[in-house]
């Protein structure tokens, strides 16, 4: 699809615009892992819980509205429940240990030229690339 990169760019601008709203409006980093932990009471520090809950609820709401506008989006999940459970556990633990994920480190931190966030982003990208390559190699994908 030739449209894919245009949609990617527009979607990216919206994501960055949303993070800019959080920064300039509320003075906070739009880091989804941290906000998710805060929203469910699993983080000791962070914004007021009501604020974190509102942001987290906004995600599926915005996704749903966009899917309606586009007439549906096609998603392809791993068919195996065990895959989702293992990946989820590791993502949850890893993002808390590393203090951020693709949004906090990748979008907010890198654009701030934070040494920590640039390092974290390079590391989790490399780690993800190696994981996918290794899974392909042993026929797990």
């Amino acid at each position: 699809m030739q449209q894919a990169w245009i949609f990617g760019l527009l979607g990216g601008l919206m994501i960055g615009g949303a993070a800019a709203l959080m920064l300039l409006g509320l003075g906070r980093i739009a880091g989804v892992s941290g906000l998710a932990a805060r929203a469910v009471g699993l983080a000791d520090a962070g914004p007021p819980p009501a604020l974190a809950i509102a942001f987290i609820l906004g995600l599926p709401l915005g996704g749903w509205l966009m899917a309606q506008a586009l007439g549906g989006v096609s998603l392809h999940f791993p068919p195996n429940i065990a895959t989702l459970v293992i990946a989820g556990l590791v993502v949850g633990f890893g993002t808390r240990l590393g203090s951020g994920c693709t949004s906090g480190h990748g979008v907010c931190g890198m654009s701030r030229f934070s040494r920590r966030s640039i390092s974290a982003t390079l590391i989790f990208m490399a780690s993800g690339i190696i994981t996918v390559a290794a899974m392909n190699l042993v026929g797990l994908s």
């Binding site: 919206m14 994501i15 949303a18 509320l26 906004g58 709401l61 915005g62």
Partner: peptide
């Protein structure tokens, strides 16, 4: 925050 979250989610879907 809800507005920012919704814009973020819409961007991810698009």
């Amino acid at each position: 925050a809800l507005l920012a979250g919704a814009l973020f989610g819409a961007g991810l879907a698009l």
